[in-house]
Amino acid sequence: MKPWILGLTGGIGSGKSAVAQCFIDLGVHLVDADQAARWVVEPGRPALRQITEHFGEAILQADGQLDRAALRKLIFQDAEQRRWLEALLHPLINQEIIQYLAQATSPYAILVTPLLVETGQHALTQRVLVIDAPETLQIERTLMRDNTSLEQVQAILNAQATRQQRLQIADDVLVNDRDLIWLRSEVERLHTFYLTLNRGQP
C-alpha cells in the first residue's frame, strides 16, 4: 500500500527541524522541501541558469553555487522579484518532492515545508501537522540560529503565512514551547496515532 503523506509545517523558528528529526529517529521517511529547493538550483541545473540570466552574475558565489544570502536580500526587498522566482521554482521543487516521496517504504511519509500554505504543497498531503510557537520564541530561536538581524527575521515572518492561516489548515497542532524530552514524547504519541490511520484519516 502506498504511504499516505503528512505535511509538517510551521513558521520560522517554530522547531520544525527538531520535530522532523524525532520522526526520522522513529523510522519515518521524510522529505524536506528546503532541501528540494537546494537541489533544483545546483550548478548545472536549468533553474540556476535562468536565475543567473534574470538577476545577473552577482548572485553567484566564486565556485558557481547560488549565493542564497544575496538572492534573499534581493527578493525580500522586491515582492515582484520574489513572485518571479517563486513562479520558476515552485513547480520544479514540487516535482523533486513527489519523486522523493514516491521512494517511501514507511506506512506514512512526511513532507516538511515552511511554505505549505503559500505554495499549494498541501495538495500533496492527506493530513497536516502544524508546529506552533509563540512569536517571541520564534524570533529568539531564529536570531540565535541564523546570525541575522531582527529586521530580516521580521521580514521573513511577514512574508510567511500567518499563524491563523496555518492553524486553519491544521489537522494536528503541536505547540513547541518546552524542552526536547517533552517534544520527543509528544512526537511518539503522534506517531503511534498516525500508525492507526488510513490515508491520514481515523
Results as ranks from 00 to 15, higher is better:
M1G: 14
K2T: 10
I5H: 11
L8I: 00
T9L: 07
T9G: 00
G11D: 08
G11I: 06
G15N: 04
K16N: 10
A18S: 11
A18N: 03
F23W: 13
I24Q: 12
G27I: 00
H29G: 07
Q35R: 12
A36F: 03
V40R: 13
V41R: 08
E42Y: 13
E42T: 06
G44Y: 04
R45F: 15
A47W: 07
L48S: 07
R49A: 14
I51A: 06
E53R: 05
A58P: 08
L60Q: 02
L60Y: 11
Q61E: 07
D63M: 03
D63H: 07
G64A: 04
L66V: 09
A69W: 10
L71M: 05
R72L: 06
K73S: 10
F76P: 01
D78R: 09
E80G: 07
R82E: 00
L85M: 07
E86G: 03
A87T: 08
L92P: 12
L92V: 02
Q95F: 08
Q95Y: 06
I97V: 15
I97R: 05
Q99F: 13
Y100K: 15
A104W: 05
S106T: 06
I110S: 14
V112W: 02
L115G: 06
Q121C: 13
Q121W: 12
H122W: 14
L124F: 00
L124G: 07
T125A: 12
Q126G: 11
Q126S: 01
R127W: 11
L129A: 11
A133N: 00
A133V: 00
T142W: 03
R145Y: 11
N147I: 00
L150N: 12
E151Y: 09
V153E: 00
V153M: 00
I156K: 04
A159S: 03
Q164T: 15
R166N: 09
D171V: 00
D172G: 10
V173H: 12
L174S: 00
N176L: 10
N176F: 02
D177I: 01
D177H: 10
D179W: 00
V187I: 06
L190K: 05
F193T: 13
F193C: 14
F193Y: 11
L197E: 06
L197A: 12
N198V: 11
N198W: 13
